[in-house]
Amino acid sequence: MVRIERREFEQVEAFIETIFREQTLDHFEEIREKIEETITLAAYKGEELAGSLVAQRKYDHLYIQYLTVSTAFQGQNIGTQLMETAENLAREMDIVNITLRTRHYQAADFYHKCGYTCYATLEDMPMRGVAMHYFVKRIV
């Protein structure tokens, strides 16, 4: 009989890392050093913060976690400039893919215009009545 218990993540974190390391070694001769960093960009109009982009890099992948532009500055290509800057940085870092997600009422059309492909849509995610769109763009 197996007993299932609810635990804090820290109580199983080392176990999880060991299992994933074993799986990786089964598929690759060696494990590359894990590259992780947060990239934060801020766009200013004069002295005022107008927009921001936050992305997480892991190995050769960049995940755009947040892209925000103040309502007062929308329609002034700030979001486009932030995305272009992130993509240029990704190329410099030899990133292969950039991914992101957005809710149906946010910026799906914008990401299409930026050259991203929607590879999945989940209905009722993260709550009923909301569709979450997942996008990818290959950089190399």
Rank of each mutant, 00 (worst) to 15 (best):
A55G: 13
E37V: 05
D94L: 08
I16A: 03
T71D: 15
I19Y: 13
A72F: 06
A72K: 13
T38D: 14
N77Y: 09
N97P: 00
E17H: 11
I35E: 12
S70T: 05
T80D: 07
Y44T: 01
Y44K: 08
V69G: 04
G79M: 03
R32S: 07
L67D: 02
D60N: 15
Y44P: 08
E36V: 14
D26M: 09
L53T: 06
G79W: 01
F15A: 07
T85K: 13
A72S: 11
E92G: 03
D94E: 11
T24I: 13
G75E: 05
T38Y: 11
A55S: 15
N97V: 04
A86I: 05
Y66R: 02
I16P: 06
A14R: 15
A55F: 08
Q74T: 12
Q23F: 14
F20A: 03
E36H: 10
E29C: 11
M83P: 07
I35C: 06
L25P: 10
I16H: 11
E17D: 13
R57G: 01
I35W: 04
A43R: 01
F73N: 11
R32P: 09
T85F: 06
E22F: 04
E87W: 02
H61N: 10
L25E: 12
H61Y: 11
A42C: 10
E92W: 00
R32F: 00
E33M: 06
G79Q: 04
A86G: 04
E13N: 09
N77I: 00
E29F: 13
A50H: 09
I31F: 03
E47T: 14
R21Y: 10
G46L: 03
I98Y: 07
I19C: 08
I35Q: 12
E13P: 04
F28I: 05
S52Y: 13
E87H: 01
S70E: 15
F28Y: 15
N97G: 01
I64N: 08
M93H: 09
L82F: 05
I95W: 06
I98D: 06
R57T: 00
